[in-house]
C-alpha cells in the first residue's frame, strides 16, 4: 500500500514557498502545452513580423529605433499571446476543473500563467537584439544589463496585463483572441514604435513607451523623459505591473466560478 503523508507534511502545502514552486510546475506545463497553439503562433509570432513590415517599409528609421521598436513589439505581443488563451482553452478542454481541485491557490494558478508568458516573451524578444547587434553594427555603449533588466520587468508587466485579458469567463479561445486584439492593437498604435517618443505625446499612456525608452537608453541614446527618465521608466512599469497583477487576482476571483456553471 502507498504511504500516507503525515500531517506536518500536509500542513506545509499552503506555505508561500510551496505554492511558488507549484506555480513553476504550472508554468512548465503551460509552456509545454500552449507554445504551439494556433492563437499563440498567430498573435505571438506572425503578428510581430507583419506589423514590423507594415511599420518600417519605405521609412527612414534609425538603427537603434528599429531594434528598440521591434524588441518592445515582439515582447508585448508574445508575452500577451499565451496567457489569455490558457483559461478559455482549459475551460473548453475540461481540464480547468481538475486543476482547481488540486492543492493550489488561484494566485498560484495565475502566477504559473505569468511565468510561462514571461519566459515565452523573453526568448522571442531577445532575437531582434541579437540580429541588431549582428547586422546593424549597433554597439551597447551604456549597459547591456539595463536592457536585460528592463526587458525582464517589462515581460512581467505585460504578462500581468495579459492576465486581465483572460478574465472574461469564455470557454472559446477565439472569443478571447478577439477581445485581446481590441485592446492590444490600440495600445500598439499609440506607442512610439520606430519613431521618437517626443513625436507622439499620447504615448505616455502606453506601457510600451517606457520599455522602448529603456532599450534606447541601453543603446546609448538619451532618455526621452530627461535626466531621471530611466528612473521614471522603471517606476511606471513596476506600478503598472503591480496594478494589473492585483486587479487580475481580484477579477479572476470573481469570474472563476462562472466557468463551471451549468
Amino acid at each position: 500500500m502507498l504511504k500516507i503523508k503525515n500531517n506536518d507534511e500536509i500542513a506545509g502545502v499552503a506555505k508561500m514557498s510551496t505554492q511558488l514552486k507549484r506555480s513553476f510546475i504550472l508554468a512548465k506545463k503551460d509552456l509545454r502545452i500552449y507554445y504551439n497553439k494556433p492563437p499563440v503562433i498567430i498573435q505571438g509570432l506572425i503578428f510581430p513580423i507583419i506589423l514590423f513590415v507594415a511599420f518600417t517599409i519605405g521609412r527612414q528609421i534609425q538603427a537603434y529605433q528599429l531594434v528598440s521598436g521591434l524588441m518592445a513589439m515582439v515582447l508585448f505581443l508574445t508575452t500577451t499571446s499565451i496567457s489569455p488563451i490558457i483559461f478559455p482553452w482549459e475551460t473548453m478542454r475540461k481540464t480547468m476543473e481538475r486543476l482547481i481541485t488540486c492543492p493550489i491557490s488561484l494566485k498560484t494558478l495565475l502566477l504559473g500563467s505569468i511565468w510561462s508568458s514571461f519566459i515565452y516573451g523573453l526568448i522571442f524578444s531577445i532575437i531582434p537584439l541579437i540580429l541588431g547587434l549582428t547586422f546593424l553594427s549597433l554597439e551597447i555603449t551604456f549597459s547591456f544589463l539595463i536592457i536585460i533588466i528592463g526587458m525582464m520587468i517589462a515581460a512581467l508587466v505585460f504578462a500581468s496585463v495579459s492576465l486581465i485579458l483572460s478574465v472574461p469567463p469564455y470557454d472559446t479561445p477565439g472569443s478571447t483572441m478577439v477581445l485581446t486584439l481590441l485592446i492590444k492593437f490600440p495600445l500598439l498604435f499609440i506607442s512610439p514604435l520606430f519613431i521618437p517618443i517626443s513625436s507622439l505625446p499620447i504615448s505616455v499612456i502606453s506601457p510600451l513607451t517606457y520599455i522602448i525608452d529603456i532599450i534606447n537608453f541601453g543603446l546609448g541614446q538619451e532618455s526621452a523623459f530627461g535626466d531621471y527618465g530611466l528612473l521614471l521608466d522603471f517606476t511606471v512599469l513596476i506600478m503598472i505591473g503591480f496594478g494589473c497583477l492585483f486587479l487580475a487576482f481580484a477579477l479572476h476571483n470573481k469570474t472563476l466560478e462562472k466557468r463551471f456553471r451549468g
Binding site: K5, I10, A11, V13, A14, Q19, R98, T101, C102, P103, I104, S105
Partner: peptide, 10 residues
C-alpha cells in the same frame, strides 16, 4: 482549501 485539497482526489 489547500490543506483539504491535498488529502482529496477528484
Amino acid at each position: 482549501p489547500i490543506l483539504v485539497k491535498q488529502i482529496t482526489g477528484n
